[in-house]
Design a binder for these strands. Sequence first.
RNA 1: GGUUCAGUAGUUCAGUUGGUUAGAACGCCGCCCUGUCACGGCGGAGGUCAGGGGUUCGAGUCCCCUCUGAAUCG
Length: 378
Amino acid sequence: MSSFTLYKQEGTARRGMLSTVHGDIQTPVFMNVGTSAAIKGGVSTYDLKQIKCQVELSNTYHLHVRPGEDIIYRQGGIHKFFNWDKPVLTDSGGFQVFSLAHLRNIKEDGVTFQSHMDGAKVYMSPEVSMQIQSRLASTIAMAFDECPSSVAEHGYIAKSIERTTRWLYRCKDEMDRLNGLEETINRSQMLFGINQGGVYPDLRKHHMEQIRQLDLDGFAIGGLAVGETADEMYHIIEEVEPFMPKDKPRYLMGVGTPINILESVDRGVDFFDCVMPSRNARHGNLFTSEGLLNLNNNKFLEDSRPIDEKCDCPVCRTYTRAYIRHLFKARELLGMRLCVLHNLYFYNNMMEEIRAAIDGGYWKQYKEEKVEAFSQRV
RNA sequence: GGUUCAGUAGUUCAGUUGGUUAGAACGCCGCCCUGUCACGGCGGAGGUCAGGGGUUCGAGUCCCCUCUGAAUCG
């Protein structure tokens, strides 16, 4: 029995809800990235509730390196540690093996690579990743996969996805075992599998057909937005979507721009996460209803309007562009914080609008208007 | 008033025994960022080398004068 309920569809766009032990998640949803159990830029869990955040995402690898999953376990799990009672998804560390390990050694059993913190050797395997995520006690754990470059050769990826499938079986077995242990904090921890296959439709479909054999709580599309064009990414989603279970949530990992999200919702994706709103905010780049705004631009020096005149976020109701630009130029931490709050609100609010549009039956029209608006610059 | 030191980009300074188109850092301007190592990355604009005169094939660099600032002595 699935904990995912599909309320409505318009074309391939879906409106649903995932029930978890930490509450319901209305989809489509954007997950706010807090890698080390913290949203970068000084955003607290009090703030997260103000900006309509439903799900927070943290990272197995980072929390393993610091402070270590045993400390979080003894603190009662990530929810108590982080003071966040809503759902948390933990990424498995597979992507970090790809993105930040210079010296890595991928073998059948697992991966050895160097920690970005101190250069110490770190070993991760499907079992180790599940054990860490179980100790963290997140709501949703991600499978430990290999994330090759999306433009890697067909031959390499063909072999890689076979191993990722074998790893997924190991993840599933280990997760079942851990959920059966008395000492496990969250014995209802969910597991999402991850589809790979680069930009090759045949590999994507083949891999999806393999991994859907497992009784998982959701399925992710990984390995996109890492070098290929947006059109290639959309094409892959279109190719693989018919092979994804209808009654399980779909998660497009690491994506993306507001337009990427609109286009992907339209192609049947339910879950998203991306560092873009927070990272761009820290660099002064803001998302608005009128398009992209670079607060560093000189033209905002004496601009007494809010970041986005149509935005109801706590920042836009209170502060001017001129002031936040000043904070930014003066490198006051508050500037970064306000920009991150705005961008995350923008994303979470957009998802709320998307859900309302599908509910209301005006999704296509909404999507087209927004894609047009978000292509502009302020 | 005397002596010494200094004056080079918006700022702080490099600049070889005189030798192509005077550099850096910060600041400024713009672009980038997609399962976060990153208040980061990339690019750009900006100089009558205080002013004038001289020596020299050639002066930011050597000489003289003027101006400005600092220190110090009376």
